[in-house]
Each structure stands twice: as structure tokens, then as C-alpha cells.
């Protein structure tokens, strides 16, 4: 790769409102794993009222407090069309926790109000009485690769998938989408949603690399990403897996 290679572009949506579970950690992982391969990531922020850039290869939505999520939901509804077009041209959209819920069709809150979602994922979320909190381990097959995913969940919403998307993984430990059907997360094309934070990507570098591969393809620059020395990531993954097992 020459130094002249243009950077991949990531749009961080609502960084000031949706950042509660260390979402910047996910972005740091995407950036570094590109840098270590001689590539670069450029981040554009789009907050309340800002336009969504049409030329990004990755779009990221993190989690927020209830109050912030309400603020964001109305604004995001106005950003639905550009995001849908981005997904249609093959850009990666990743939503974590609150961001995941907003990628669905809507969130029926406990007070009877419904927050709009942008319907990029065929799923619905309803408020539950108790929060689902704790360590999670998934077994997942993602882009044809099988592996485990570790993380932490903390959500009141119960998410139910429709036929238009598939779960990210099966729950081995933890609650998952709704604590009932053993599914966690959702994937449709290159749009991915999950409740897992911790954050998600540092301890699951294989997911990060699949997302980066997709983003490079959408930029018209498909490359075989060179493997990295992930001993530390694997060790942290194993520790998290062990913790989750012990706490059951």
C-alpha cells in the first residue's frame, strides 16, 4: 500500500449523545487495525441537525442514556434516507446498544411512547421491566467465519427480529436480544447491530477485520487484510469468556 492511498472514511453519528459504553473504543480499534496495515481512517462526526455525509464507508451509532436516545431518535428519522442509500451502496453500518435499537423499526418505551427507528434492520424493540445486565458469550458465524464473541450487555429493551435479518450469534452465556429466544444482535447485508459493548471490537478483532474488509470493498479497494499479532486480544477474549462462565 502506498502512502497515497486515500483513507477510509467513518461517520460517527451523535458522538456527543451516544457514547455511554465507551463507543470511542470501537472506533479506535478500526483506526489502529487499518494503521497497522499501512492504511488510514478519517472520522467525520454528525451530530443533531448535521447532514449525513454520503461518501463514508462506515457509519457508527453508539449507545446513550434514555434521555439522549429520545433526542437522537427524532433527528435520526431525518437522516434515514441518506443512511439507507449508504447501506444500499454497500457501506458498513454498525449500531451498538441504543444505536442498535434505532436501526430497527422502533422502540416501544415503558411510558407507551414509541421512538421511531430507521428500519435498516427488520426488528422491533419493546421496553422490558428489568434490565438485562451482565457478561455475554456468543457463538457466531459471521461472513462465513465461525467464532465466539464476548462482551457486556446492559439494556432494558427486548429486541425481536423479523425475517429480514439474521442474528449475529447464539447466546452461550448472558441474555441476548430479549432473554428468551437465545439470539443476539442482527445482521442484514453490511448492517450490523448488537447489544454487546465492553467495547465490542477490542476483544473480538475478527469481527473488526470483517467490517474493515467490507468497508474496503465498498470503497472499491478490496484487499486481503494481513493478519496481525493478536495475542493480547485473544488473551483478553479468553479472560472475558472465563469471567462470563464463572458468574453464571
Amino acid at each position: 500500500m502506498s502512502a497515497a492511498t486515500p483513507p477510509l472514511r467513518l461517520c460517527h453519528l451523535y458522538p456527543e449523545h451516544l457514547n455511554i459504553y465507551a463507543d470511542r473504543g470501537n472506533i479506535a480499534v478500526l483506526r489502529r487495525r487499518l494503521e497497522w496495515r499501512g492504511l488510514a481512517l478519517e472520522t467525520v462526526e454528525a451530530g443533531l441537525g448535521d447532514p449525513v455525509p454520503a461518501d463514508c464507508h462506515l457509519y457508527y451509532l453508539g449507545g446513550g442514556q434514555d434521555r439522549d436516545q429520545r433526542l437522537v431518535a427524532e433527528d435520526l428519522a431525518r437522516k434515514a434516507d441518506p443512511l439507507r442509500r449508504a447501506a444500499e451502496r454497500g457501506a458498513v453500518v454498525l449500531g451498538v446498544c441504543g444505536g442498535y435499537q434505532l436501526l430497527g423499526r422502533g422502540y416501544a418505551a415503558a411510558d407507551g411512547r414509541t421512538l421511531p427507528g430507521i428500519g435498516l434492520l427488520d426488528l422491533e424493540t419493546v421496553a422490558g421491566r428489568r434490565r438485562l445486565i451482565g457478561d455475554v458469550v456468543l457463538s457466531a458465524t459471521f461472513d462465513g467465519q465461525a467464532g465466539t464473541v464476548v462482551g457486556y450487555e446492559n439494556h432494558a429493551g427486548r429486541t425481536y427480529l423479523g425475517g429480514g435479518c439474521t442474528p449475529l450469534g447464539r447466546v452461550l452465556r448472558g441474555h441476548g436480544n430479549n432473554g428468551g429466544d437465545g439470539c443476539e444482535g442482527a445482521v442484514a447485508g453490511r448492517t450490523v447491530g448488537t447489544y454487546l459493548h465492553g467495547p465490542l471490537l477490542p476483544k473480538n478483532p475478527w469481527l473488526a477485520d470483517i467490517l474493515l474488509g467490507w468497508a474496503l470493498e465498498s470503497a472499491g479497494r478490496p484487499v486481503e487484510l494481513a493478519p496481525l499479532a493478536d495475542e493480547l486480544e485473544q488473551a483478553a477474549h479468553t479472560v472475558a469468556q472465563t469471567r462470563a462462565g464463572r458468574r453464571r
Partner: peptide, 12 residues
């Protein structure tokens, strides 16, 4: 207990 998580924090 979570030394590796902290190590990743500094690595990234």
C-alpha cells in the same frame, strides 16, 4: 482480574 483489557486500552 482484567489486566488484559487494560493492556488493550493502552495498545489501541
Amino acid at each position: 482480574d482484567r489486566a488484559h483489557d487494560m493492556a488493550l486500552r493502552f495498545r489501541y
